[in-house]
Nucleic acid binder design. Structure first.
Length: 415
DNA sequence: TCTGGGGTCCTAGGACCC
DNA sequence: TCTGGGGTCCTAGGACCC
């Protein structure tokens, strides 16, 4: 049996741990640049505030109901997520860290599933302050479903062990609410007369395969209680990596785009070295604001394949700048640039180029740079093209403190 | 004025090989 | 008139996830 532990309204819950005045009132957390709603408390959901909604469209609603607003604080959420996952690992040997706020647990050998679910819930709540829901079933897809229904119960735990309870839960679930059925598939399924998740479970294999590929077929088998997705203990290393962010305001000058590209290439390279990988393909893309249709639009990307993989920031930055200059056009109001690495391999296994020496110097230099930045702060050493005090940085006007990772931002309690 | 960021997997079709 | 059979690799695009 598999359990899915899912943190309730995770970003909002993180904010509430450190600010009790947020309890009992509507709270939303915004995306980067304070653009869209990405998390809502139950009270905010009850007001009809939708996920992904642009903030400027519901400004008056937010004001009218005195909704508390926070910018995304990923430093805080990342650290809180780590605490939740570590807590779960103490309680269960097999934990797959599925996303920032969800984990699959393998519960084989446990007799009292409901009791164990409650225990997980209580301990996580006590140790981290984060409320979670637990769904338990024979497959991941059914565990997801169980979790969705568990959220609506007071106990916060639901076990779907037998066929009857599964059938009942599937009957009550719209087909579009299933894990693995997005907007397009939902529309297609409804067109073919399938409204409930139960309809899809009963569908013909060949029919599903033809329309939803083997991925969809596996999911349908899982709904029948046949596990097709195992729990993965080790997080697989990334095969590609993107660093990109919208600007706080439109940018037209090449020099500013060059700074941004340098910063993103540097950041992506750091992440690459954290998984001890090297990348061979670099892509740079730029785009204007596609929602402002009255302005001229330009979106383009360019890429280059290196002869052999590298993790050297300097190499990435110089290629990325070259690619940017190739696609940049004067006179457009750009809203976003990004840097992507592909064909990532583990460093030890990477194929050397015909003319490479061992590149020891570069590897040792990057190790030193990372060590210095760890000790003295992230920007202690960087390439000069990153610029100083960039003007294009994203907006985060309602940012809470990094309570758990910075001494100078610790919560203060007065008695 | 204002609309997120970061990933994975699968398939079809074209180019190319012998 | 008539034009093989069997493969691999790559890319773009489409679907999904949080």
């Amino acid at each position: 049996m598999i359990a899915l532990v899912d943190c309730n309204n995770f970003y909002v819950s993180c904010e509430r741990v450190f600010d009790p005045t947020l309890w009992g009132r509507p709270v939303v957390v915004l995306s980067n640049n304070d653009g869209c709603i990405v998390a809502r408390s139950e009270e905010a959901k009850a007001l009809g505030i939708l996920m992904g909604k642009p903030v400027f469209q519901i400004k008056s609603l937010l004001r009218k109901h005195r909704v508390a607003i926070r910018s995304s604080n990923y430093t805080l959420y990342g650290d809180m997520s780590r605490r939740v996952m570590e807590t779960l690992r103490r309680l269960c040997p097999v934990v797959e860290n599925y996303s920032i706020d969800e984990a699959f647990l393998d519960l084989d050998g446990i007799a009292d599933m409901t009791g164990h679910g409650r225990h997980l819930r209580e301990v996580v709540r006590r140790w981290t302050g984060i409320p979670v829901s637990v769904g338990i079933a024979p497959s991941k897809s059914l565990a997801k479903l169980a979790n969705k229904h568990a959220k609506r119960t007071d106990a916060g735990v639901l076990v779907l062990a037998d066929r009857d309870s599964q059938t009942e839960a599937l009957r009550k679930t719209a087909v579009g609410d299933l894990w693995g059925v997005g907007r397009r598939y939902a529309r297609m399924l409804r067109r073919n007369g399938m409204e409930s998740a139960l309809d899809l479970r009963e569908a013909d294999d060949k029919w599903v395969l033809d329309r939803m590929t083997v991925v969809g077929l596996k999911m349908v088998h899982e709904l029948r209680g046949i596990p097709c997705f195992e729990c993965e203990l080790e997080a697989p290393s990334k095969k590609s990596l993107i660093k990109s962010c919208s600007f706080g305001r439109p940018v037209t000058a090449l020099s500013e785009l060059e700074e941004a590209v340098s910063v993103y290439a540097t950041g992506a390279a750091e992440r690459l070295r954290m998984q001890d990988g090297v990348a061979r393909v670099i892509t740079v893309f730029i785009m204007t604001n596609r929602f402002q249709t009255e302005n001229p639009q330009h979106a383009e990307s360019a890429k280059i394949s290196l002869l052999s993989g590298t993790n050297d920031t300097r190499i990435f930055v110089s290629h990325a700048l070259e690619l940017l200059r190739r696609i940049y056009r004067d006179g457009y109001r750009y809203i976003k640039v990004g840097v992507m690495f592909d064909e990532i391999e583990p460093r030890g296994r990477a194929q050397l180029g015909l003319f490479d020496d061992k590149r020891d110097v570069s590897v040792r230099l990057m190790l030193a740079v990372d060590a210095i930045n760890r000790q003295f702060g992230n920007d202690a050493i960087r390439v000069a093209s990153c610029g100083r005090r960039p003007q294009w940085r994203m907006r985060r006007e309602k940012l809470s403190r990094r309570f758990t990772t910075r001494f100078d931002e610790l919560l203060q309690v007065r008695v």
